[in-house]
Amino acid sequence: MASALRPTLIRQAFAAPAKQLLSRNASSLGPAARASLLPQVRAGLVRDALPASRAGFHATGAKAILTPLPETIQGTVNDPAPVPPPSPLHGSYHWTFERLLAVGLVPLTVAPFIGGSLNPAMDAVLCAALVIHSHTGFTSCITDYIPTWRMPKIRKACDWLLKFATVIAGVGLYSFETNDIGLTAAIARVWKA
């Protein structure tokens, strides 16, 4: 019996005041009552930092950094999200290659601390591995923060900028390796200066 009564009772008890508070049309109120009610309604529904049109959705204030671009709709509203064509080169192989490279970098990083510095061949291997590791790391950042579906032109520009920068870095490191004493030896020399 209690369960049969409860919804009706609750509705009776709460529906009327709730409707009063939420009603946009308060014209039947006296001016004094309206003035006292509206700030309450506003405080309950609207955060100051947000435009009134979006306030209904938001429970937290707006953040100033990395604000998203305005929403856009491509195609019609009910199109499913496009699924990129599957490719092992950009999936599992790519992932495994990155891990192997990262694992390989561990001994190359630790060895100079034991032996003082690396021999030229291993130093060149370290530099090449560092450049590839950096390149894949930067690629991940670009993929994560500059999605093609949102900023296609900036994405393309960043992709090419990274390729260009990697080539420059590779050539620069090659030049350093062939003209100077090698990366690990140079760091040790400056560190102990």
């Binding site: 930067f138 990697t166 870095a169 620069g172 490191l173 030896a185």
Partner: peptide, 30 residues
């Protein structure tokens, strides 16, 4: 990103150093 960025910047600067007359050889930096 900080480490890789430093590496990239140093490499690019080393490559460009003859153009600007910078001395980025390890002996000069040390």
């Amino acid at each position: 990103v900080a480490l890789s960025g430093s590496l990239y910047l140093f490499s690019a600067a080393y490559l460009a150093s003859p153009l600007f007359g910078w001395h980025l050889e390890s002996s000069a930096i040390a």
